[in-house]
């Protein structure tokens, strides 16, 4: 139906009767060739002068910026590595120092302990000796006192015997007894 419609319209109208595509209408070719060249070269000039350099500039700037940043990052990494190695060395040295100090302290402590022990020993010995001397002195003093008592007792006995006018035999016996007693008391004191 549509073809019929077009056919009838074509028979009537002159535009549709024109054969083929409008693109083959050669009367407009010359101006289009000319303006295609002109338009193309104007666009070429405009892009080459204002657009392409701008894009190239910014792309180059970004590329160099990225290269810079990478270089900086690399330098930073190397610096960090160096610092770490440095620190590691310091750490080892510090550990060694600490170990040495510990050892010294241990030795010091041992020496001081020994010294204290020795001093205590000396002190004790001194005290013991002093005590022994004191004991000896006390013994002597006690012996002296006992002797004094015996002498006094003997004098009392002698007085009494003299008073009772005892004979020689009795006197001898009594002295003997007294001496024996004295010896016994002396032995008891020891």
């Amino acid at each position: 139906m549509i073809t019929e419609a077009y056919a009838s319209a074509g028979a009537a109208g002159k535009e549709a009767a024109a054969s083929g595509l409008p693109q083959f209408e050669s009367s407009v070719f010359a101006s289009q060739i000319f303006w295609t060249f002109v338009s193309f070269f104007i666009l070429l000039m405009l892009l080459r002068k204002y657009v392409l350099p701008a894009i190239e500039t910014i792309l180059d700037a970004r590329a160099s910026r990225i290269a810079d940043e990478l270089q900086k990052a690399e330098a930073g990494r190397k610096e960090a590595e160096r610092l770490q190695a440095n620190f590691q060395g310091q750490l080892v040295a510090a550990r060694q120092t600490a170990a040495k100090m510990m050892e010294e302290a241990r030795l010091d402590a041992a020496r001081m302990k020994e010294q204290a022990h020795e001093e205590l020993q000396q002190e004790l010995t001194k005290k013991k000796n002093a005590a022994l001397v004191e004991i000896e002195q006390a013994k002597h003093k006690a012996m002296e006192e006992v002797r004094n008592v015996v002498v006094e007792l003997s004098m009392h006995v002698a007085e009494k015997l003299i008073v009772k006018s005892m004979n020689t035999e009795d006197a001898n016996r009594m002295v003997q007894e007294a001496m024996t007693n004295l010896g016994e008391s002396q032995a008891r004191l020891h």
């Binding site: 407009v28 010359a30 101006s31 289009q32 000319f34 303006w35 338009s39």
Partner: peptide, 10 residues
């Protein structure tokens, strides 16, 4: 004589 007319295409 050289046609450089301004058309809708141009």
């Amino acid at each position: 004589g050289f046609d450089i007319s301004i058309s809708n295409s141009v």
